[in-house]
Amino acid sequence: MERPLVRLLMVVCCLVAAGWLAVDYTAQADDRGTYPSDRVLAAEFEAHHGEHVFVWIDVTAVTSDGVSGTFGSEDTAVTVTDIDTGTNVNAGDELQVYGTARSDHRIDAERVVVSHGENRTYMFVASAAAALWALGFFLLYWRFNLARGVLTPRTGGGGEP
């Protein structure tokens, strides 16, 4: 039988490894990406003039000049131009934009993909429901044995729920 301390150490080692990988990923992700990250782009948008960029924008307004919105954790403002006239995009939608960065916080779009606001609401609601279902489904078949400190199947004499 395994000692609880050994199992605890194994769990801690795994969590430390996960943490180390997460930190390493964070440290390198900005330099490794195909396009400048949101964080880099927000910090020095002008420096990327003429480069291809890819950002997710929260649309705030659609005008004759283009689509205005924000991206990144700092809500950096940007205007997207050269969008096909038939594109169905409105304030509250999320827009994936691939295009060329211009110095005045503008992106000349080459490809855009719209995620409509109501569809995003569905995504969040469905995802929350799925998380609850997955948890319930798991607890239907498994229980935590406090005395032994292990997850055990609820199979009893061999039957399943």
């Binding site: 795994c14 969590l15 400190g149 292990v150 997850l151």
Partner: peptide, 11 residues
Amino acid sequence: CLLVAGVVLVE
């Protein structure tokens, strides 16, 4: 890594 940590808790 997270899954392996979880599996250690399984019988």
